[in-house]
Simulated scan of single mutants.
Amino acid sequence: MNLSRIAGAAALGAAAILTLAGCIQLPSPQAPTTTTPTTTEPGTTTPTTSEPVETPSNALVDTQWSGTATGPESSIDVTFTFQEDGTLYITAWSGQDDTPYDDPTDTWSLDGDTLELTLSNIQEIQRIDLTGTYTGSSPIQMTGTDGVGGTGYTMTLTQG
């Protein structure tokens, strides 16, 4: 083989490699990330971590509460458990024998610290919609209206 041919082949190979190298971009080096420890006491350090914070609505799930909804048209003693799906599992209702039950129209919601309850399927008044402020503890003072426009309903919920 001729020396000029070998040199020419080597030059072509080198040109091809350089051409391809220009098309390929290697990732830029990244600076390593570090966690800065915080000092809690002199001479003691702990790493900075973030733990999940329990929201008040999660704190209500699976807890049992009771109270008496009193108003101009009706008075109802009720005991229930807040369920994760936003419904109330009724375990006592003014001494009725058909408890416990889980009606999807008996609901609850918590928006910030505003707790809303709906007790439904009440004969003459259809339902009672109650609103109160949940501070993370018992009791909860609530006020509300019934399903036919009557106002003046109150309820004090206690946990347990």
Rank of each mutant, 00 (worst) to 15 (best):
I6Y: 09
I6G: 00
A11T: 15
G13N: 12
A16Y: 11
A16I: 13
I17C: 10
A21Y: 14
L26F: 08
P27W: 04
Q30Y: 06
A31P: 10
A31Y: 05
T33V: 14
T34Q: 09
T36G: 02
P42V: 10
T45H: 04
T45F: 07
T46N: 10
T48K: 13
T49I: 15
S50C: 03
V53N: 09
P56T: 10
S57H: 03
N58A: 13
V61T: 15
D62K: 14
W65M: 07
W65L: 04
S66K: 01
S66R: 05
S66P: 05
T68A: 14
A69Q: 04
A69Y: 11
D77M: 06
T79R: 09
T81P: 02
T91N: 12
A92E: 10
W93D: 00
S94D: 11
S94A: 05
Q96Y: 08
P100R: 02
P100K: 11
P104N: 09
P104K: 03
W108C: 01
L110C: 05
L110K: 02
L110N: 06
G112D: 00
L115D: 10
S120Y: 09
N121I: 04
Q123H: 09
Q123P: 12
R127T: 12
R127V: 06
R127F: 12
I128K: 00
I128M: 02
I128N: 03
T135A: 12
T135H: 06
S137H: 05
S137E: 11
S138Q: 10
I140L: 04
I140S: 02
Q141H: 04
Q141D: 14
T145D: 13
G147D: 04
G152Q: 13
T156C: 02
T156I: 12
L157A: 12
Q159H: 12
